[in-house]
């Protein structure tokens, strides 16, 4: 989410228009963008079920940092800036609400048991990238956590894989910022279960110029604004594995 309330509005409209039965948000409500309260208000007003992300856990528990799991000093510098901004601009009532969010949501979809989480079922801030997550590792997560479908986010890049034995994994992506592909759109994942589960990634266009303008007004780093305007990541690059890193510009 990363405070991108403008993209959230467009996402909800799109999902409702498609007749989605339920909408879930997999966490990290704040970070990166402006006015963190606005996204919280929209989610709460519309009673969207939310899984707690590491960011929400940090803000809700009033921790010193976002637990994003960066190891590079430059990444940590920007993570700190955005955490301090988000923390200072989140209302007390939203902080209390974030603290109560569940670490996972479970659903029955036909004969399938779905598990929704932020990073991975075993760790809220685990990165599951497409090029560093082996199929047998995902199969083990399905076994250990008794799930047929696992949905996670946290990396900022969507992907999906069908696993042996009628099991499924999807990283649902994010609506907070573009996917490091030179496009300004963001996107969400639609999950339909008829005979078998099917994931469809849906790109979402929103008023990114307005978001960029508000970020500048709030004096958020110009590096973040550039990502919104160009679709390329400029920070937090050191956590990217080789394949994902090569696809980006920086």
């Amino acid at each position: 989410m990363y405070s991108n309330y403008l993209a959230l509005q467009e996402t909800l409209k799109d999902a409702w228009r498609r007749g989605a039965d339920a909408i879930f948000c997999l966490g990290d409500l704040g970070a990166f963008g402006p006015h963190p309260d606005r996204a919280c208000e929209i989610l709460r007003k519309n009673e969207i079920a939310v899984v707690q992300g590491n960011y929400d856990n940090s803000i809700g528990n009033r921790l010193q940092d976002c637990q994003c799991g960066y190891t590079d000093p430059r990444d940590n510098y920007f993570a700190k800036l955005s955490y301090n901004y988000t923390y200072a601009n989140t209302a007390e009532d939203h902080k209390r609400w974030m603290k109560t969010l569940p670490g996972e949501i479970r659903l029955e979809m036909g004969k399938y048991r779905a598990l929704l989480c932020h990073g991975s079922p075993r760790k809220m801030n685990e990165f599951l990238w497409e090029s560093t997550t082996p199929t047998h590792f995902l199969e083990k997560l399905c076994r250990d956590y008794r799930a047929d479908i696992i949905c996670a986010t946290h990396t900022g890049l969507h992907w999906q894989r069908e696993l042996p034995g009628d099991k499924y994994f999807a990283n649902v992506g994010v609506i907070g910022r573009p996917e490091n592909n030179g496009q300004t759109s963001v996107g969400y994942m639609l999950l339909e279960v008829n005979d078998t589960p099917r994931f469809t990634y849906v790109p979402v266009e929103y008023d990114y110029q307005r978001l960029a303008g508000e970020m500048r007004e709030e004096k958020l780093p110009e590096e973040f604004v550039e990502t919104i305007l160009t679709g390329w990541w400029t920070t937090c690059l050191e956590v990217l594995p080789a394949k994902e890193r090569k696809r980006g510009r920086f």
Binding site: T132, T133, P134, H136, F137, E139, K140, L141
Partner: peptide, 9 residues
């Protein structure tokens, strides 16, 4: 042997 154990990298 690593398959069953779920080694990641």
């Amino acid at each position: 042997e690593s398959l069953e154990i779920g080694v990641k990298e």
